[in-house]
Design a protein around this nucleic acid. Structure first.
Lengths: 221, 221
DNA sequence: ACCTGAACACCGTTCAAGT
DNA sequence: ACCTGAACACCGTTCAAGT
């Protein structure tokens, strides 16, 4: 019986996501997933046509974990909730987050969120192309907040993180006080995020306030 | 004489940047750069301790190509110019753009831009940590605008781009009209950016308007 | 000081073969 | 239908050696 029939897409995706969560996106190799099942690397090619297809499925899993905002909210509340829903889903798997934008529209939850967002914007007077742009900005902003959260940067592989943070801190502290006083003063909060919820909340506040300013300009024209 | 002494850091970085521009970040291999100089892969290890160091230098080159905004502008104009300067520098090398955030503070132009931005924000009443957060949002937003510009996504390798765009377009067009009317209507502008300058300008407008709303809230408190 | 040559431990993937 | 085995063309990198 061995490992025969022990594989399927769902199990493989779970395993891949575990590896990505633990060790980063670039640590995900076909061979490592195969090892987790005690199986030959080639076994995976029965279930996924190639590594890219596996990565797509991982991205889909992240998107599928997303909640949907209340469709009856006004534009401001809706935008805030939509971005929060996105951010929350991605924070569950920060290292898989770069996969999300490419897959969002391939998953029903993502399509519904996007359609609803366009609806809210169009109802508030945004032209369809402008609405699409705003929705795109919101998605990309959410994604980048997660991958770029200070102290949790996913561009550095988890194993090297502490070292990288210490290096960044000491670089900033070694800057001349007279030329870079604010950079030095801001160093701690640039290297490590003191309050994650505040970090995300602030960014969403700024973005939503910007969109609402645009909406008001449309209303009075 | 052959290839002896034909290499130096500057030349290698130029070559690496050419490869990245032409074929994407993941197409950059030590061996390919070596080939461009008719040299053994190991020759590069004399000039860079490893591939990561080479990538860092590529990122530094992009940052170094950035102009600085007028320091005498008010907050709003300054922020707009700062983001535009960032975006313009990154648009020169879209595929190298993901390297920028990690390297910004390692290059004088990036440090100066950041210090100046913190100055402007603090002078307008932002606490230093909040100013640091806003500067970070602005950087990440700028970066993500470039890597995510519809029709120019750098997450897809250049060779596969046309195919990927066509696939995305036909997926959107195949959605049911009754459930996803707006997604279908927005498809062209989601797949391909009609006006790049408008795309960047709009996003910067929204972000800056959001920050200014925050600034006004601080002023009246 | 600057580069070569051979080798090592990894990749993703093909293709034919097993059960 | 589902998986194995061997092989291929790539990676980044080490280490000793050449000039």
């Amino acid at each position: 019986m061995k490992a025969k029939n022990s594989l399927n897409r769902e199990l493989v995706v779970e395993s891949a996501l575990r590896i990505v969560d633990a060790s980063g996106l670039e640590a995900l190799t076909v061979r490592k997933v195969a090892d987790e099942f005690g199986v030959t690397p080639m076994a995976l090619y029965w279930h996924f046509s190639n590594k890219e297809a596996l990565l797509d499925a991982v991205g889909d899993a992240v998107v599928a974990g997303m909640g949907l905002p209340d469709p009856d909210l006004g534009l401001e509340g809706y935008l805030r909730d939509a971005m929060t829903a996105l951010v929350d889903a991605m924070r569950e798997h920060p290292h898989a987050t770069p996969l999300v934008p490419h897959r969002l529209l391939m998953v029903e939850a993502g399509r519904d969120l996007t359609e609803m967002t366009l609806r809210k914007l169009v109802d508030e007077g945004f032209a369809i192309d402008k609405a699409a742009a705003v929705a795109h900005y919101a998605l990309m902003m959410s994604m980048t907040l997660v991958v770029g959260e200070p102290g949790k940067e996913t561009t550095v592989k988890p194993a090297d993180r502490d070292e990288a943070l210490a290096a960044k801190m000491s670089l900033l502290q070694s800057l001349p006080e007279d030329s870079y006083p604010l950079l030095r003063a801001a160093a701690p909060s640039m290297v490590n995020c003191a309050d994650s919820d505040d970090y995300y909340g602030s960014a969403i506040d700024i973005f939503v306030a910007g969109v609402m300013a645009e909406a008001r300009a449309l209303a009075t024209s």
